[in-house]
Design a protein around this nucleic acid. Structure first.
Lengths: 193, 193
DNA sequence: GTGGTACGATACCGATCTGTATTGTACTTT
DNA sequence: AAAGTACAATACAGATCGGTATCGTACCAC
C-alpha cells in the first residue's frame, strides 16, 4: 500500500480543486466531485471524513500552490526586497489578466463561509494572515517607514484584484492596474524602487 | 390595495437582506427567509417568481443603500472632488471597522455566482461598473493624470477592504489602513490633497 | 352587505443534498 | 496460496432544497 491509495486521493483533490474553484464551494456537490474524479463515492469518504474535510484538504493544497507561485515570483530578486514586492504584483497582474482566472480560493471561501468557527473560514483566515506576515517582513526588509501599514495596504490591493478578476470574466478588469498601484504605495512608504 | 401589499414585500426584503448578507446566498434557504420575515411562504412567491428573483431584488435595494451612503459621504465636500474621494475612503474605513460588517453584498455575490449569465452575477457586475464609472468621473474632476487608472486602483482597495472585513470578524483587519492607501494613490496621480 | 383579494397556515411534491450500507473483485503482502 | 485491503458499483437513508396546492379568513372597495 501507499501508492495506490494516493492515486485516488489525488484524483479526488484534483477534481475538487477544479470544481470548487471554478463554480463555488456550496454550489458543487460531492456527487459532482465523485463523477469528475472517476472514483467511487465510498472512496471519497474513505479518504475524507466529510465534504468540509475535503474542502479543507483542497485549501491546504491551494495554500501550497500559492506559496510555490509566490516563491517563483520573488526568486529572481533575492536580497532585493523592494524588487521582490514589485515582482509579486507584476506576477499577480499576469495571473489576474488570464480570462480563466477564478479569483482566490481563500477569498471565495471567506465569502461563502462566514462563521469564524467553521474550519473552512479558519483555513482562509490563516492563509491571509500568513500572506500578511510575509508581506510585512518584506516591507520591513525593504525599509518601509511603517511595514505593517504597507503590508496591509498591499493585501487590500491583492484581494481586490482577486475579487475583480472573478467578477469580470474575460473583459479587462480594474486589476490590470494593480502593479502600478503597488509601486505607488511602496513609494509613499519611502521605499526606493 | 397598494399599501398592504408593500408591507409583506418589505418584510421579506428586510429578512432577506439580513440573512443573505450575514450568512451567504446559497447558505440561506427560502424557508429561513420566510420564518424570519414572519410572512407565509406563498406570500413570498406571490411577490417574487423565484429565489433568484428575491436575490436580485435584494441586490437592487442594496444598490440604493450603497448610493445613499456614498452621497452622504461626499456631500460635505461638494465642488472639491479630491476631498470627496478622500471622504469616501474615510467613511469606508469607519464602515469596515464595525465588527458587525459583513463585507459587500456584491463582492459576496460575485464569489458565489460565477456564471456571467446568472442574473445575480450580472447585478453584481453592473453595480461595480457603476462604482468604477463614478470613481473615474471624480478622479477626472480631481485632476488625476490618468482618471481611469486611479479609479481602478481605488476600486481594488475598496473591494479588498470588503473582503478583509468579512474575513476578520471583530479583530482589527488590514482595512484599517485603507484611507491612507487611497491618499497615497491620489498623490501618485498628481491629485493635490 | 357582497365580491374580490391579499394573506396565513399547512401539507405536500419532486429533486437534490450529504453520508452510509452492501456486495463483489482485483491486487498486495506475507 | 491465503488473508487483508483498497477499490467500483449500486442502492439507499434521512434531511433539506425550491416551489406549489389548498383552504380558511380578515380586510377592502363598491
Amino acid at each position: 500500500m501507499g501508492h495506490k491509495v494516493r492515486a485516488s486521493r489525488e484524483k479526488l483533490l484534483k477534481a475538487a480543486g477544479e470544481l470548487f474553484f471554478c463554480e463555488g464551494y456550496r454550489a458543487v456537490g460531492v456527487d459532482a466531485v465523485v463523477e469528475r474524479s472517476g472514483v467511487a463515492k465510498m472512496t471519497l469518504y474513505r479518504h475524507f471524513a466529510s465534504k468540509d474535510d475535503l474542502l479543507v484538504a483542497y485549501l491546504q493544497e491551494a495554500d501550497r500552490h500559492f506559496w510555490n507561485w509566490f516563491a517563483a515570483a520573488v526568486a529572481p530578486y533575492a536580497e532585493a526586497p523592494q524588487r521582490q514586492l514589485l515582482a509579486v504584483f507584476a506576477a499577480l497582474a499576469r495571473l489576474l489578466a488570464d480570462p480563466s482566472c477564478y479569483g482566490c480560493p481563500f477569498v471565495n471561501a471567506g465569502a461563502e463561509f462566514v462563521d469564524g468557527e467553521h474550519p473552512v473560514h479558519k483555513a482562509a483566515l490563516e492563509h491571509k494572515l500568513a500572506v500578511r506576515a510575509r508581506l510585512c517582513a518584506m516591507a520591513e526588509a525593504a525599509g518601509a517607514q511603517a511595514p505593517e501599514v504597507l503590508a496591509d495596504q498591499l493585501l487590500l490591493l491583492m484581494d481586490g484584484g482577486y475579487v475583480q478578476a472573478r467578477l469580470y470574466g474575460s473583459r479587462p478588469s480594474p486589476a490590470q492596474h494593480i502593479a502600478e498601484a503597488a509601486a505607488a504605495l511602496l513609494a509613499a512608504q519611502g521605499v526606493k524602487t
